[in-house]
Design a binder for these strands. Structure first.
Lengths: 202, 202
DNA sequence: GTAGTGTTGTACTGGGCGGTACATTGCGGC
DNA sequence: GCCGCAATGTACCGCCCAGTACAACACTAC
């Protein structure tokens, strides 16, 4: 029981369950979503869930991965190692937050709740954020290599502060149900990155 | 039923319940904390809870207020309208996050979960954040009035971006179980504020 | 078709949880 | 000392929910 699907059909059912879980957990929170809600939404039965997952925690872990994949997938549509690409990405994040009714970051909101649930989930959350951070770091490193940002800048540090600005923006925007904090936070993050550009040699 | 306490003793019991609830909800999340857990911790009975609160949601709302009060209380120990006071406050936030085992912001983590629970709680969360933001705004306005920061700076905007940096730092630090993101995020926020100081006239 | 493995339907259970009912006790005012 | 209200103890209820048991079905290979 609760093993990886071995047929295409099984794979599709598993994905449908994760997708439905991701949607509901995003909207109502992890603990606010019962497995039966998920199964109803995915039009699946209980035996299917426990065929592929060992527990709700296990499903939740899959949901983090799924949401991270979604976020990184959208992120890949932008050339983050260019100024215009970065700006477009920020704009897209803001648009997304608006269109999803100020519900916050699909990864970040899960992260807060799951970090307090179990050691295992906490570890998965950490992994997810480090991965996300890493994709940003690569973009900044590329910019540095191409001379777009100063050679002394630390891509890892920039990735961390940028992600913090994104999450801080999301959180305030969700808490206050207002787009403005997110707009301002990202604007500031962008300006900071921009300030590291084209340093007049050393 | 569920009305304000009318005696000193009642007041104390009510406070004890809220305090215990705040502690547990912070550690385990709101939905991860049962009212019975709270009552055990507060050494109280169920009739006491429902004497002062109409529901768990009602108690949760009181917990937001309590946590905000705690945070603002600690914040009041610093002169936020001075550079050294600001820096000390940031340092204290970092120390707090460390000493509380990377569990995140006592207000922010509640906010994420509660925003998705009900309209009423969402409204209370918004109120809390706006209040917090306001205290920062007052500090920045005082600085501006005293010429510590540029006359063109907008205190409201600074308050929002500063709070976003705080929350973003908390979130990443909690997700990654590492102090560094918070340290860097606050360092950056401080540098940004600092950059608005002593503009060479217009 | 038949065997074997992957998949799915259904019915059930045991525990936990929010909330209620109601009786009882503590306490201040007169 | 007794009345009245605030405060508290206790037992209980109904519901929901994660997880299980087990039987039935689907597909592939031969």
């Amino acid at each position: 029981m609760h093993q990886a699907p071995k047929t295409r059909r099984g794979q599709e059912r598993r994905n449908a369950i994760v997708k439905a879980a991701a949607k509901l957990m995003y909207e109502r929170g992890v603990r606010g979503t019962s497995v039966e809600d998920v199964l109803d939404a995915a039009d699946a039965g209980k035996s299917q869930l426990y065929h592929y997952f060992s527990s709700k925690d296990d499903l939740s872990a899959a949901v983090i991965d799924y949401q991270l994949t979604q976020v990184l997938g959208q992120q890949d549509q932008f050339r983050l190692d260019t100024w215009s690409g970065l700006r477009s990405w920020f704009d897209a994040l803001i648009k997304g937050q608006e269109s999803r009714a100020f519900r916050g970051c699909p990864v970040g909101s899960l992260a807060v709740e799951m970090s307090a649930m179990s050691e295992k989930l906490q570890a998965r959350v950490a992994e997810a954020f480090l991965h996300w951070q890493d994709t940003l770091e690569q973009a900044f490193e590329a910019m540095r290599n191409r001379g777009l940002i100063d050679a002394d800048a630390l891509p890892a540090e920039l990735a961390q502060t940028t992600l913090a600005a994104v999450q801080g923006g999301y959180l305030l925007s969700t808490a206050e149900q207002d787009l403005q904090p997110m707009v301002r936070s990202l604007k500031l993050a962008f300006a900071h990155l921009r300030s590291l550009a084209a340093k007049p040699s050393r």
